[in-house]
Amino acid sequence: MHEVSITQEVVAAIAERLGDKRVTVVRLEIGKLSGVVADAVRFCFDLVAEGTTVAGARLEIAEPPGRVLCRDCATEYEADSLIVLCPACGSAHAEVLSGNELRIRSVEVSVPCAAPAAAPRTR
């Protein structure tokens, strides 16, 4: 299950970019044709994040569908796997255009409030 390694890479990359900032949300993009199962990443995320600055963060995964181009009739269509048949001509030959994404889009971090702790609350 390479999703554990993938998730470890995510956590390591975030730590490298953000140092000891506390991360509250992690946003990933895992395309349907990337070869990585988003559910498996969700499954191991908490375990991998434990003891790091990402521990307890909410994981949001966008899963863009695959877009492929028929090599025979040039029809562009959507595909959720690499085994495809062109809806126009029935050809199985297709070029992947997108859906291979495997990216860390953004994270949310908590920042201390700029207001001094002793400041009186305004109502």
């Binding site: 993938i6 890479e9 995510v10 990359a13 975030i14 970019r17 953000l18 509250t24 949300v25 990933l28 495997l102 990216r103 860390i104 889009r105 953004s106 994270v107 949310e108 971090v109 908590s110 920042v111 201390p112 409030c113 207001a115 001094p116 702790a117 400041a119 609350r121």
Partner: peptide
């Protein structure tokens, strides 16, 4: 501290996982 909601900030990373 003050009840504000601006205590979380989004940082774009746009980085390939691998």
């Amino acid at each position: 501290t003050c009840g504000c909601s601006a205590n979380s900030v989004t940082i774009p990373l746009e980085q390939r996982v691998l």
